[in-house]
Design a protein around this nucleic acid. Sequence first.
DNA 1: CCGCAGTGCTAGCTCCTGCAAGCGGGCTGC
DNA 2: GCAGCCCGCTTGCAGGAGCTAGCACTGCGG
Lengths: 162, 162
Amino acid sequence: MQRPTEFVREQVTAVRESVVTAAAEAQTVPAAVSSHVGEFIRTQRSAAQVSLRELARVAGVSNPYLSQVERGLRKPSAEILGQIARGLKISAETLYEQAGILDRRSGTAGTVAAIRGDAALSERHKAVLLELYETYAREHAAQLARALEAAAPTPTPSEETA
Amino acid sequence: MQRPTEFVREQVTAVRESVVTAAAEAQTVPAAVSSHVGEFIRTQRSAAQVSLRELARVAGVSNPYLSQVERGLRKPSAEILGQIARGLKISAETLYEQAGILDRRSGTAGTVAAIRGDAALSERHKAVLLELYETYAREHAAQLARALEAAAPTPTPSEETA
DNA sequence: CCGCAGTGCTAGCTCCTGCAAGCGGGCTGC
DNA sequence: GCAGCCCGCTTGCAGGAGCTAGCACTGCGG
């Protein structure tokens, strides 16, 4: 019977110690209520540098309708959201959450759902994995934020003289 | 005592007749929808011993509409499904899955793939989670194997003689 | 200048969802 | 017998989802 490595054990312990702090921070975050799925779709589409017509074509929906959805004039069904998600190459769950159809879960919907639904895990082990996952996801986001700050240097005396 | 050949012939004939009847019934059934959510809702409602009108009232939908949904005549939106789920005191995700809106998450492969493909994680964190996951899965399997052995003792000479 | 290709959007239309009004049936109490 | 209540279902309709046809605009090349 193999046991978790020392490294893994330390990670789990560190996570437990930081859970209280994380929970306190979560309490101060306001709950997102209304649907911003249209904005979200437009943001994702722009990030992918795809035209509205191209996305509509790939997703199999009409481009005027997609335009209306993006501008919040229409409320698409789950089926249409699924098609748009496929066109954007993102998970349908992501759009469902943005649309308020699905409750937002910590981290990426797919991973959390997979852990929760996995019959190969006991409930206790699921909880441990989910805590660790959430902490890692938060760390990763913080690292990305730092990297972005480093990539967009703020004016400094040495740089001004260069 | 019937002769084997006649008996066999009658059985084959009976099977043929039942196949024709089944095929005829299948032809009269409207195009099969991948969604069985209506049946599922009715089943859950019956199990809860709640009338259609009562569930409709609690769920906040019209009872004729709920009736149509249960009989597969209408395809409810995700919003209505959420209301019905609340009325039935089950998770909305359960009904979304039955309706084909949400993919059912299952199995070990799904969890591993989800962790590996999760953009919210760094590669190092993925490795940690995967190692922990494998260890837990092994542990769980070993526990199940032990429980099965205890529940189903293997035959022993003393038992054979009893 | 023109035509062409691409862009996102407007307007009118069809079809379907979800509802209200009401039906026929069964059961109970008077 | 009756009225009242509950049951699930039928019918007709309003409003919204999603579409087609087409518009105005931009950029490019001849």
